[in-house]
Amino acid sequence: MTDLASHTAFGAAQPRDRTIGALALTERPDIALASLTLRAGSRAPAPFGLDLPGPGGLAEGEGVAAFWSAPGQWMIEAPGRAESDFAAEVVRAVGDTGGTDVSVTEQTDGFVAFDIVSRHGPAPLDALLERLVNLDPALWGPGRATRTVLHHMSVFVLRRDASRVTIWGIRSAAGSLWHALDAALTRQNVGGYP
């Protein structure tokens, strides 16, 4: 183990969190992330037993999840494993399932992840998301994930279930992304929104 200390995307030692009204916003620096892209002629593997989902899909497994990010490309995430060489683990996991030819790239530190969880069902979460992203909740509900734009920033929006969403944004813009989420949460709690 290195004796260097890691810092969050905000340059801090500890992750940020904030609860406003029904919604809790939590930075998740512990989630490891790697991209997996099929090479020409390869079939989709099943790393960690995950059935890699189709366009817009999100598949959750035991301690690991995958979401579609581009044709032939997925993001594999694993909570609690950010300090590991996760890309290497994904390569091994693909090898374990038959060794199809893929390109894997470490992405953990390319992004910052925020969980937003509602204590009062989906309504507060839906009300928040409609301020942030132009996604039809009827099409991008539980089990769906997509990349889109949020206040001029590229993000992945993962609707894990009705009351829980994870937003992956680019790490360097973590401050602007937090500001956007925090401001929307604060306004929502004023009561101006349904």
Binding site: T37, Q73, T105, G110, R171
Partner: peptide, 8 residues
């Protein structure tokens, strides 16, 4: 296969 790793 291409992917950006600028921030990583």
């Amino acid at each position: 296969q291409l992917i950006s790793t600028t921030d990583a």
